[in-house]
């Protein structure tokens, strides 16, 4: 199912974080005004699109999850989540490639601050599109008396990035224009692929957080 969602709002604070600023630090005025300038510009460069599918979970055995359509995820973290769920949503979302092309051209012209700012805006926008998808799915499942988990992507925790292939097989990446490289990175780069568990409200999937039992305290993605 392919949907476009224009009017994505960009979170300037998140852009600052992607630029490396810590949450309690106020960036110099020139950087803040560059962010404002390029956020305006970015609205014309972002072409949000997403595609998703909902699949039945057949069974979970150890750290393997068997999903209809011969899809198998192998990850302890994902298995622990999905054994509490009846269905899994797989989605791919993107902001398209216009923004990253522009950022590349800026860097080529020696405007590396502008390029980095636009790139960070792109990363934020890509997350915002994924947030939008998650919100929409949340509303949909809520109406059915179900709830959804946070989203998880291959390449994080113990979920090998090669599992991107399974996600793309499930969704069919072509509809969003996103493709995988041999190393399973996405092109356009500003794309998100993820799964969301769908379970009963009585389950605890909404608050599933593998970070609580993980010892890697310096992980940049720690929730």
């Amino acid at each position: 199912m392919l949907v476009t969602c224009n009017g994505i709002e960009i979170d300037r604070k998140q852009v600052c974080r992607y630029l490396g600023y810590s949450a309690d630090y106020k960036p110099p005025a020139r950087i803040l005004s560059l962010i404002d300038e390029y956020v305006e510009h970015a609205h014309h460069l972002i072409e949000p699109a997403y595609s998703y599918t909902i699949k039945n979970i057949e069974r979970v055995e150890g750290s393997s999850v068997f999903i209809e359509g011969s899809i198998v995820f192998r990850s302890r973290v994902i298995a622990q989540l999905l054994e509490q769920c009846s269905k899994v949503l797989v989605f791919i979302s993107t902001i398209g490639n216009r923004l990253e092309k522009k950022a590349y051209r800026l860097a080529e012209d020696g405007l590396i601050v502008q390029s980095a700012v636009l790139d960070a805006i792109g990363s934020s926008a890509a997350e915002r599109v994924a947030d939008f998808v998650q919100g929409r799915i949340g509303e949909m499942t809520d109406a059915q008396g179900l709830c959804i988990s946070p989203r998880f992507s291959p390449g994080y925790c113990d979920w090998d990035i090669s599992h991107q292939k399974m996600l793309f097989r499930a969704v069919g990446g072509k509809s969003t224009g996103v493709r995988l490289t041999e190393g399973c990175l996405m092109i356009p780069r500003k794309s998100v692929s993820a799964i969301i568990g769908i379970g009963l409200r009585s389950s605890n999937v909404e608050h599933y957080n593998p970070c609580k039992t993980c010892n890697k305290r310096d992980c940049p993605s720690r929730r």
């Binding site: 630029l19 490396g20 630090y25 590396i112 601050v113 700012v117």
Partner: peptide
């Protein structure tokens, strides 16, 4: 931070 360092690097590049 990184953008500040980039601004300086940009000046050196120019």
């Amino acid at each position: 931070y990184i953008p500040d360092m980039l601004a300086s690097a940009e000046a050196v590049g120019a």
